[in-house]
């Protein structure tokens, strides 16, 4: 008797649990919060001239489509350009400006600008960590390692070549300015084919 009771109870519990756990609600879509879809680099010549923009846009993030690259024009010879990098997450609406997060963690990020040997251009950082407000403390960083959200690009003679721009997360800081020494994880890496004339 006891066993029969116990058994029917066990069976009933099972049936009950199986029976009522299904629901037909549709899952919510996930918008990637952390993806960087777009990098806009604006190069403004000091003393006037045509502003050049470089863009790499990868709207499907880790999807199969490769990023679209657009370059607004050629750089002028012997010119100093003020460069600004803006990162966007266009997977969210409205697009999120990722620069805020990079700035808040400036001590954990660094951009690296690597022109190849055929491109007659040099790069210099014009910002450092102390330009930015730490997310953690709410105050400006006290350290002064370069970040690279703003920089200068100085051209000399006419030439063609690539400029690779890489953002590293948690690199060794300070480092000798090379990617190999810095290590860390790559958040963005994109090469642009540039013409100086």
């Amino acid at each position: 008797m006891k066993t029969t009771k116990f058994l029917s109870l066990a069976l009933l519990t099972g049936t009950f649990l199986v029976g009522c756990s299904s629901d037909d609600n549709e899952p919510d879509p996930v918008n990637e919060e952390e993806t960087i879809t777009t990098m806009n680099v604006t190069l403004t010549p000091q003393g006037g001239g045509t502003t050049i923009t470089l863009q790499s846009q990868d709207l499907d993030g880790d999807g199969p489509n490769a990023p679209n690259i657009s370059i607004s024009g050629d750089l002028a010879e012997n010119t100093v350009y003020d460069g600004i990098v803006v990162l966007l997450n266009e997977a969210e609406t409205p697009a999120e400006n990722v620069n805020e997060e990079i700035e808040g963690e400036a001590d954990e990020h660094q951009f690296f600008f690597v022109p190849n040997s055929s491109l007659n251009a040099t790069i210099a950082y014009t910002d450092d960590e102390s330009d930015y407000v730490s997310d953690e403390t709410g105050e400006n960083f006290t350290s002064t390692n370069p970040v690279g959200i703003s920089f200068t690009l100085t051209t000399t003679d006419a030439s063609t070549g690539t400029l690779a721009i890489t953002l590293r997360h948690e690199p060794k800081k300070p480092n000798d300015g090379t990617l190999a020494d810095a290590g860390g994880e790559t958040d963005i890496t994109q090469a642009f084919n540039l013409v100086i004339e």
Partner: peptide, 9 residues
Amino acid sequence: VEFTIRGAF
């Protein structure tokens, strides 16, 4: 290999 803005994977 696929390419994204983060590089190749």
